[in-house]
Design a protein around this nucleic acid. Structure first.
Lengths: 185, 185
DNA sequence: GACGACAAACCGTCCGGACGGTATGTTTCG
DNA sequence: CGAAACATACCGTCCGGACGGTTTGTCGTC
């Protein structure tokens, strides 16, 4: 903190702003809307400034992946730590993080962008694979219903992402309850 | 000389070839790989010839959407007609069509491409919405478990699409059974 | 069924603009 | 000062799309 104090422009803040705008553009305009010009302009930085933080476009997308994956891991770990019951802990955390009960919180929009990014750039799918490999809980020694629940959550996620006509709030609540009931315990 | 491919004479064949190659490129190279040059070359037609069938790139993607949505509808209807039990018919057909039990059949690769296209081009999401609106079965008056099953199928679909480490064949079979068991009956 | 007229299918080239990336100047902090 | 953190200007390439021309099929007429 000492080195960032009183600095006119905090590079870390610029970097975060850049990543946030990248995610937003990815969601709203699609992958084709993510150009270096558009990102830099949206983030309130010049193109050169953007390229100072990320040497090229691939590095930008990689940076987005890193950031979002890390925040996703953190959110999962947080939820799991708060769950006293060991069994099905991961599945419940997965539900809580991916299936927003009361509206969309901060950061979740970004995770949607992550999906868009992975589908857009085949290169990132490779990174997804190694990420999954790094998470023992995801590897499928889990009980069948745990898998089922996680896949259902992913499906809801995709549906929300595509903006398809969604469930009513009442349905969402009931679905959440059902998902938790199906989780191992 | 009689060309191995369609030299001329069958515009419909050219059109289908173009759409097939568009879908393939979309899956393999991602949205950025779908250029008019790449599509025309892959389909064995000149750029001018491609633009004769589809006046611009948007029309090409729209054409792909139309084609795949239509084939998806047909596959669903086929499956539903073959199901003697009325209750849960739609859900079971949805499972059968979207969750390939024995390998990937023809056309299913294309449906994956459809997902990629919709995620890439925000414009197509609008079309998805109206498509869903046109299908009474999808509108969510369905029982909770029917929704759950469909979302789970979508999740598996997404997972396959991203090439994430998937289930073992045995797990897939068990999952299929479980999904059908959860379907309304 | 031969023939000419017309339309559809298709080709090859060119252009304007956008996009990723570079090279270099300018400011700000330690 | 010196280095990090930007900004400005610019370059080469690629992409979407327009355009004119060429070949192939179709159809009416006799």
């Amino acid at each position: 903190m000492s080195n960032s104090r009183n600095r006119r422009k905090h590079p870390e803040a610029v970097r975060r702003e850049v990543l946030a705008e990248t995610a937003r553009l990815l969601l709203e305009k699609g992958p084709a809307g993510v150009t270096l010009d558009a990102v830099s302009q949206a983030a309130g930085v010049s193109k050169g400034g953007l390229l100072h933080h990320f040497p090229n476009k691939l590095a930008l997308l990689d940076g987005l992946f890193d950031d979002l994956a890390h925040r996703f891991d953190q959110a999962l770990a947080e939820r799991m730590a708060a769950d006293p019951v060991e069994k099905g802990r991961f599945t419940r955390a997965y539900i809580a993080v991916c299936f927003p009960a009361g509206g969309v919180a901060e950061g979740e929009e970004g995770w949607k962008a992550l999906t868009v990014a992975m589908i857009s750039e085949p290169h990132l799918r490779e990174r997804l694979r190694s990420w999954v490999d790094g998470r023992a809980e995801v590897r499928a020694e889990a009980p069948l219903d745990a898998l089922l629940v996680r896949y259902a959550v992913d499906g809801i996620w995709l549906s929300d992402l595509l903006g398809a006509p969604s469930m009513t709030p009442a349905q969402r609540a009931a679905m959440m309850e059902r998902l938790i009931a199906l989780s191992p315990s």
